[in-house]
Amino acid sequence: MDKKMIRVCVAKPGLDGHDRGAKVLARALKDAGMEVIYTGIRQTPEQVAETCIQEDVNCLLLSLLSGAHNHLFPKITALLSEKGRKDILVLGGGVIPEEDDEFLMKSGIKRVFHTGATTDEIVAYIREQIPS
């Protein structure tokens, strides 16, 4: 009970309503024993950052399918550093061309998962990055 619990925020920034992937993932993370805060769709970067702070999560998963990732993801990581949570493991997913990976990683996204990534892969990656 008192071992460190992995708390993950699964967030849908931007305006797209495609939440299938985010919800499937949220469920898989729960089944893997994590506490998952799912934000619902249409979150502003400020809302996402605020949720991460208040909920004191160790990991943030951003899912976006509208193509606005290069604009919104860096805004969120910037807000997190500004608010003193640079340490949160931030991961991205959705419809993101591989050529954008480099830019996103420079902006503080630790890794981008592309179409076809499995939930098992993502769970394993989080566990490896956040040992409990």
């Binding site: 931007g14 305006l15 797209d16 502003t44 509208s66 606005a68 290069n70 604009h71 919104l72």
Partner: peptide, 17 residues
């Protein structure tokens, strides 16, 4: 998406979309 959600292109919520 901003058009679908009734936001003009200069709305802050439309940024990046």
């Amino acid at each position: 998406l901003p058009t679908q959600l009734g936001y003009d292109s200069d709305d802050p919520l439309a940024e990046g979309e």
